[in-house]
Amino acid sequence: MLDASFYEKTDEIIEQHTREECSLIPIIQDIQAEYRYLPPELLNYVAREIGITEAKAYSVASFYENFSFEPKGKYVIKVCDGTACHVRKSIPILDRLYNDLKLSKEKATTDDMLFTLETVSCLGACGLAPVLTVNDKVYPGMTPEAATELIKKLRGEADAEN
């Protein structure tokens, strides 16, 4: 159950748009930007507020791959496994990150909500392969060792913020 602040923030987001079906995607994009995922309770709330069925809202949100109903970490790491990256050994990088972060294909987010690890088909940076991104910042020419160092650096930044 979400606390009242989630609904208050969602009301603010809805007010920035029209209360029509055509505003569903921009509204849920803004919600996901705020919380790094789309809480299902808020999707239901938005559907009621803009006058569409929950089923319609879910069909739209689940159609687009970039909407996530699961909470994501502060740092979302996407490892490219497209052809160029795969040939240039992206899998050992992914394996190292799984090991360093104690994650798996079944468990994508660390318990401390600091990291989420995803594999993507292409990041559109084939000439820089192998590539990964952290919150959409591109890290080219990665190696397993460089990935480990990146995790240490990000952990240090997170500790410095706290």
Rank of each mutant, 00 (worst) to 15 (best):
E20Y: 09
E8T: 14
A84M: 10
L114H: 06
M1D: 12
E157H: 04
I77P: 02
K9N: 11
E106S: 14
N44K: 15
V76L: 10
A125S: 13
I27C: 03
K89G: 10
V60A: 07
N99I: 13
V120C: 06
T110A: 03
A108Y: 14
L94W: 11
D100L: 11
P39V: 00
Y45E: 00
P130E: 08
A146K: 15
R96W: 09
E15A: 12
Y37N: 09
Y75N: 08
V120K: 01
L150G: 00
E49Q: 15
D81M: 15
K9L: 12
T10Q: 05
A158D: 05
N162S: 13
A47L: 03
I93K: 04
A55T: 13
Q32V: 11
E65R: 15
V120S: 00
D11L: 09
V120T: 06
E34I: 09
G156E: 06
Q16A: 12
F63W: 13
Y139R: 03
A61V: 08
A84N: 13
Y139P: 05
P39D: 04
E70A: 15
K102Y: 11
R88W: 10
I50H: 02
T119C: 11
G127R: 12
Y58R: 13
A55P: 07
V131W: 06
I14D: 03
L101M: 02
V120E: 00
M1I: 13
I50D: 00
L132R: 01
I14S: 02
D112E: 08
G127T: 11
P26V: 04
F115G: 00
Y98G: 07
Y45N: 02
E118A: 07
C126V: 05
E161S: 10
R36A: 12
K102H: 14
E34S: 11
T148D: 11
G127H: 11
S59D: 11
Y139L: 08
L123P: 00
G51W: 05
P39E: 07
N44V: 14
A84K: 12
E157R: 07
E49T: 09
S121E: 12
